[in-house]
Amino acid sequence: MRRTILHLVLVFLMVVGYSGVLLAHGLNSDPELFPVFRWSLFSKVPNQVETNYGIRLLEVHGEPLAWGVYFEQSGGFGLNYSSPDASVLTQAIGAATTPGREKILADRLALFEDRFLADAAPVRYELVRRKYDVIDRYFCDCYISEEVLGEFRVE
């Protein structure tokens, strides 16, 4: 009986400890404290009209494209275009465009270029902030507005 109670207490402490680490690290802090994940998955419902960031390719393998192609639509170039990691990293890059975060921006761009663009080098691309209606964009791939934040090149 005493052993059962001890085990129950240990399991309870494990759950409390996990929650404590989450709270101490900050529930909304980014990045998460590995391996204590928040488990906030698909918690936020997008607004009908959303704004996010995209990587738009302008030149692939040194060849200029007739029109810019967003990375998530670049399947024809043999890139890992459907990677959720690429999408998350792109948003992290966009979040680092605020003044005073230049070093973080450079690190994240280098990570993206190495992991997702290296196979298409030399590449020229731009970082775009885009505003869209979620359902409209799903069906017509159209945007309300697109603003270029910067242009970059990978040799």
Binding site: P46, N52, G75, Y81, P84, I135, Y138
Partner: peptide, 13 residues
């Protein structure tokens, strides 16, 4: 519907 549309667009899946 909004969650699904947003997710599928971001990964073109």
């Amino acid at each position: 519907s909004l969650i699904v549309a947003d997710r599928l667009m971001e990964t073109s899946q």
